[in-house]
Computed example of a mutant assay.
Amino acid sequence: MRTRAIVVAAGLALATALAGCTSDGTISMFSSSYGSKKDSGYQLPSIPISKVPRKYHRQTVRYDTKEKPGTIIVDTNEKFLYLVMPEGKAMRYGIGVGREGFEWKGTARVAMKREWPTWTPPSEMIGRQPELAKWRGGMPPGLMNPLGARALYLFNKNGDTGYRLHGTPEWNSIGQAMSSGCIRLINQDIIDLYERAENGAKVIVL
Rank of each mutant, 00 (worst) to 15 (best):
N187A: 04
A197Y: 03
G25K: 14
L185Y: 14
A17N: 10
P48I: 06
Q129R: 05
L83A: 07
D189G: 04
P45N: 08
L81T: 04
Y42G: 01
G159T: 13
L12W: 12
E103F: 13
N77E: 06
I190C: 01
I204Y: 03
I174D: 05
W116A: 11
G142I: 09
L147G: 00
Q129W: 01
S32C: 00
K38S: 14
F102G: 00
P121L: 13
T22S: 15
T16V: 14
A5N: 05
Q59C: 14
G41R: 01
F102P: 03
L143R: 11
P69Q: 08
T3Q: 14
L14I: 15
G137F: 03
Q129F: 02
P169Q: 03
W104E: 05
P45Q: 07
E67K: 13
G167V: 10
G148E: 12
M29S: 11
L18W: 08
R58C: 02
G167R: 03
R136G: 11
K66W: 05
M1D: 08
G70R: 06
Q43K: 04
Y153S: 01
W119M: 12
Q43C: 04
N172V: 07
P121M: 10
P140G: 04
T3D: 13
I49R: 08
T65I: 04
A15C: 09
S32T: 14
L83V: 10
T3G: 10
